[in-house]
């Protein structure tokens, strides 16, 4: 199952104007792992995610997804293997109705219309959005939008799920539903987030990025236990790990 592995070695990237965004990122994510990517605004998380989908190419170093280097000639395979859920669902849900949006990727893969219905509805059911099928996306709530954008990615049966701030703008109940949903997935999951409580629940491992470098990489509980690292990245220890202010326990 080598194709579920993400591996970066000395990855570097600078924006066209010369601003360095990633400086020497090395990491390896194994099959089926759930990894949280945390760090302050502008740390380089989104830039790194863009490399995973082949929207950017490394300036130096290597990035391999399922054994294939991320480069122009492997784009189709890489985008087939990696499903990306965008931070703002409005950017991702561009088709007229929920059904058509979920079908967009499948049609690009050349799935026949006979198979389309079953696959799309299967994905919509997984995220609990089957009843929304003929609604236009801009009329949905944030939680519904998030669910539908995940369905649009799931339907393509990716090996690796990449998510950018999936809990942003969600009300507590929608957030809870998302957490339960993500826990059921068997995909390799890489999730950029500021929501450390969410990371603690969903991801067994956390990677901290600070100014384009990896400053910590390990089991989530351990990483979040190191307050110095967290403070350096403008992060705050999740409530679940803090000592109880009332009893000191």
């Amino acid at each position: 199952m080598s194709h579920h592995i993400v591996e970066a070695q000395g990855l570097r990237y600078s924006y066209p104007d010369g601003t360095p965004a990633l400086e020497d990122i090395s990491l390896r994510v194994e099959h089926g792992e759930a990894v949280a990517l945390v760090g302050e605004n502008g740390a380089g998380k989104s830039t790194l995610l863009r490399h995973f989908t082949g929207c950017l190419f490394p300036a130096a170093g290597t990035l391999r997804i399922g054994g294939l280097p991320v480069a122009k000639e492997h784009l189709t395979e890489i985008r087939r293997a990696v499903g990306m859920v965008f931070q703002n669902p409005d950017d991702q849900l561009f088709m007229p109705t929920v059904f058509e949006d979920a079908a967009f990727g499948l049609l690009n893969l050349g799935v026949s219309e006979a198979q389309l219905e079953g696959k799309v509805m299967g994905a919509l059911e997984t995220v609990g959005a089957a009843h929304l099928r003929s609604r236009p996306p801009y009329r949905l709530s944030q939680g519904e939008k998030r669910a539908v954008s995940i369905a649009g990615v799931l339907v393509m049966q990716p090996d690796i799920l990449v998510m950018d701030e999936p809990t942003s703008n969600l009300d507590p109940r929608s957030r809870r539903r998302l957490i339960e949903l993500l826990k059921t997935f068997k995909h390799t999951r890489i999730i950029a987030t500021h929501d450390l409580d969410f990371a603690l629940e969903v991801c067994g491992r956390t990677i901290v990025i600070h100014k384009g470098r990896v400053t910590a990489d390990g089991p989530t509980r351990e990483v979040f236990g190191d307050e110095k690292i967290l403070r350096l990245s403008n992060l705050e220890q999740p409530a679940a790990l803090r000592k109880c202010p009332a009893c000191g326990g």
Partner: peptide
């Protein structure tokens, strides 16, 4: 630009 990227990620050609 973001919409375009989202389309690319889902196989837009």
């Amino acid at each position: 630009e973001r919409v375009y990227r989202a389309m690319l990620c889902r196989g837009f050609d």
